[in-house]
Amino acid sequence: MPIITDSVFIKGSSHHICQDYAIHGDNHAIGSDGCSSSPHTDVGSRILCNTLSEKLKECGANTEVLRYAAYDAALCADKLGLPNECLDATLFGFHILEGQVISFISGDGYIYKRFRAGGKLSEELRAISFEPNMPFYPNYYTNLRRLKSHNETGVKATLKVDYPSSDLPSFSHTWEADEFCRYESDALGDLELLLMFSDGLGTFQLDKKDIEVNKVLESLTNIKSYSPGFLQRKVINGMKKDFVGTLTHWDDFSVVGLINV
């Protein structure tokens, strides 16, 4: 069965315009969450996703690709007459290359992986958050003053790792969040499902009461049909069936993913 990629983004209930964006191609998918307090980030997140998509085709995923994409996106925004701050947005996604899946994230969000090796299933969930809520945006690479300012504000990044289907204890690690971009590489053969989310994942509510991320994840990872559009169907139709009541999310929500069965 071929690998199937997909992406979806949906406006949050507290937003007038969706500042999240997500796209996918045959071997990659990219999502972006625009900063609410910066101007025109709905456009900026689109520029970043498309610029990064072109960069991945050009040079593949590497530890500099987000920086290169940010430079090109800044040029694009400038040509469009948009302020540079429109690119204040997270970037996350993956690129499948030579039997490896390279996933990357700059800013906050979630990474879920399900592995199946030797008939044994395992799951991992990584949650990346920033304190105070000032995620590192790749756009800071394009402006040394803002990069320096961000690095000097003492922002802490926390990576929390959970193992949803096992008894393994979760753990977290916190560190100075300067120039935070995380890259991970996994063998495609063992990876059954990869989902990467914007921080909107943590804002779901059922009948206006908060739902635990693990409950939302349980629904999102219960994929009913392994065919193109699997994430769109799950998010647009399937999740409503998994919960009794009115399901909402106040923040914009985007997810990119692959299935490999």
Partner: peptide, 9 residues
């Protein structure tokens, strides 16, 4: 053949 269908609706 549902495995060939790519739309949501």
């Amino acid at each position: 053949n549902i495995t060939n269908l790519g739309s949501t609706e």
